[in-house]
Design a protein around this nucleic acid. Structure first.
Length: 609
DNA sequence: TTTCGCAGCCAC
DNA sequence: AAACGTGGCTGCGAAA
């Protein structure tokens, strides 16, 4: 047994590192003490839990003064027994550890999820802001520094310094550092001690502000999302390999065209800008640092293309601009999607994207490694890579204009609530009220942009840029919109006034406190709408599991759920899922649109083979 | 050599 | 008076 000592917040703590089986007797004694709550953490070789190369190295247990760091290669049975004892577990960012323990030790999410407390969830409820947003942050280190001990070492960054001394990098260090390296063991042990103390500090705070109920909900949701992640989605590997090859060829062909105009690297914005200027093009827009902007909003018009890639016929296309946008798109799709899919798949050709259930400031969920919430939707080719399990079909149900409906409900605007109840197209309705009965397609487009502008907090200038309409008609459309839906303007003003003179935050119907930046109080409306829309989807996921439909779910995508079901039941299952998703929110119907896609996700976007 | 901020692009 | 919100990820090019 190796024993390390460390002072945490002025108190001496011990970190025990058993080296042989005889050392476990003391560990059993520690467990037999019967602490109600024990902190747990894992150290692994990397973040990609389901790739064949992923390994579990250490599992740590601890209280506020004592940690046990156990090697998974030597002591797996003891670790499993400890995890299965009937007591509460305390984990910082349990979304990750639940999956690790399930995959490597077979201790399932269902076994330990329901009795796990996650300090990251508690911290997010207290303040969801990251460090860069002016908050404490959601990592164990910044939270410990604030709530436990200002001297808390940064165990993650501290180790990267150690990695360098060993000739390792950030990428190779977690797998390569010797498993008994003193700093590695020490920091592994400190993490559970800090997590335990952090829980002791912020657990009561969450209770005091009346968020116990929301906390319970978020813990339950996280467990369900972990089950979705464990399930994963099936990848059509031959299709992805073929697609990747085609995309790379396309990227190379257009890169060769760009090279003829002096651009050796299409991803170098500096090279592209210089070459375009040399060709006599004007570049009026600039980036925050002052460089000429050459993004696709600039390049597509130079190539005589709309933002939807249709020919405008208003000028001679600039061949360089055309080649650059085409090469970059093909390369982005090849790398960010096709290649990422192949890198992250498990041994059974399934992808298990990480679902962050409580991610954004607004609690919106995120999906990463790979980013399945942001696959191209204007074209089916990338989504076609995901296929249903044998005998099943991909199905999906999305909320219809959920953010507009939430805004209508929260603001209580009678005109909009009635329009929704009557089932009319909201943007056409707005266009008619703003521009009269003879409104055009362009008028509807402006009305739609104004509606989104209200949700996002966008102003006349932004809407002008988006729609190409002139500033004056956009301004009058905004004024007419306010006159048509006075409740929405009133509601936004109320949120801002409260923040102006009271706490710089907005509180959602679920009781979530969302901090506002003092120079961006106008974001209040967006925050409460976005957050509430997320809460509705989260509630739907919980309800679907309660209704026995959880086994069908595959992925949440902000306002929709992707699922699968046996082919001959698919239509019925998705209708049922859609029904469970629907609700009445302050008198406004939150409606869903169920759809059977077919053999792949891409079949919902026009794929046929 | 590795890390990191910027620019850009994908989604809702 | 006006104010475009939330994420993930890749490549470049300079800093460390």
């Amino acid at each position: 047994m190796r024993t390390l000592t460390h002072v945490v917040a002025g108190q001496p703590c011990t970190i025990n590192f058993p080296e042989r089986h005889a050392d476990l007797i003391a560990f059993e004694t520690f467990l037999a003490r019967g602490d109600k709550v024990i902190a747990v953490d894992t150290e692994t070789t990397g973040l990609d839990v389901y790739t064949p190369r992923h390994r579990l190295r250490l599992v740590q247990f601890g209280t506020s003064t004592e940690a046990w760091v156990l090697r998974a290669d030597l002591f797996a049975p003891a670790i499993m027994r400890a995890l299965r004892q009937p007591r509460s577990l305390l984990v910082h960012n349990a979304a990750y550890d639940l999956l690790v323990l399930n995959r490597h030790l077979g201790v399932t999410i269902e076994e330990i999820g329901p009795r796990t407390f996650d300090t990251r969830i508690l911290a997010h409820l207290l303040d969801p802001r990251t460090e860069s947003e002016g908050g404490i942050g959601l990592g164990l280190k910044p939270l410990s520094a604030v709530y436990v001990d200002p001297e808390a070492p940064d165990t993650q960054n501290g180790l990267t310094a150690v990695f360098r001394g060993l000739g390792l990098t950030k990428a190779t260090g977690w797998a390569g550092i010797p498993i008994d390296h003193e700093t590695y063991v020490r920091y592994a042990g400190l993490d559970v001690i800090y997590a335990h103390r952090l829980f002791g500090e912020i657990g009561p705070m969450v209770r005091d502000i009346g968020l116990d109920h929301l906390s319970k909900f978020e813990h339950h949701l996280q467990t369900l999302l972990a089950i979705l992640q464990r399930r994963g989605m099936r990848l059509d590997v031959p299709y992805v390999q073929r697609l990747k090859g085609e995309l790379i060829t396309e990227a190379e062909q257009f890169a060769a065209v760009a090279a003829r105009y002096g651009v050796a690297n299409v991803n170098s914005t500096a090279q592209v800008a210089e070459a375009l200027l040399a060709m006599g093009e004007q570049l009026h827009e600039h980036t925050p640092s002052g460089a000429p902007k050459v993004d696709k909003n600039v390049l597509l018009p130079l190539a005589d293309l709309t933002l939807q890639w249709e020919r405008i016929e208003s000028r001679t296309p600039n061949p360089l601009a055309d080649a650059v946008v085409r090469s970059k798109r093909a390369q982005k799709w090849a790398e960010s999607y096709a290649q990422a899919f192949l890198d992250l798949k498990d041994a059974d050709d399934r992808l298990h994207p990480f679902i962050g259930g409580l991610q954004a400031r607004t609690a919106r969920m995120s999906v990463s490694r790979p980013p399945l919430q942001q696959l191209p939707s204007g074209d089916w080719t990338i989504r076609r890579a995901f296929i249903a399990d044998p005998g099943q079909a991909i199905i999906a149900a999305d909320y219809q204009a959920v953010e507009m409906r939430v805004l209508a409900a929260l603001s209580g605007d009678e005109t909009m609530i009635k329009a929704i109840a009557d089932g009319v197209d909201l943007h056409s309705f707005t266009a008619e009220r703003v521009f009269g009965p003879d409104f055009t397609k362009q008028h509807r487009k402006i009305a739609k942009a104004v509606g989104f502008g209200k949700v996002y907090g966008g102003g006349a200038a932004t809407i002008t840029r988006q729609t190409g309409a002139d500033l004056e008609s956009v301004k009058s459309a905004l004024a007419a919109y306010d006159a048509t839906f006075p409740g929405i303007k009133r509601y936004s003003r109320r949120l801002m006034n409260r923040a102006e003179y009271g706490r710089k935050e907005v509180v959602t119907p679920s009781g979530r406190h969302l901090p506002l930046d003092r120079d961006r109080l106008y974001a209040a409306t967006n925050y409460v709408v976005q957050s509430t829309s997320r809460d509705l989807l989260a509630q739907a996921i919980v309800d679907l599991f309660d209704a026995g439909l959880g086994e069908h779910l595959l992925l949440p995508v902000h306002d929709e759920l992707i699922a699968q079901a046996p082919r001959d039941e698919a239509a019925e299952v998705i209708r049922e899922i859609g029904r469970v998703m629907e609700s009445n929110f302050y008198g406004v119907r939150i409606a869903s649109d169920p759809e059977v896609y077919g053999p792949s996700w891409g079949h919902g976007y026009g794929a046929s083979a």
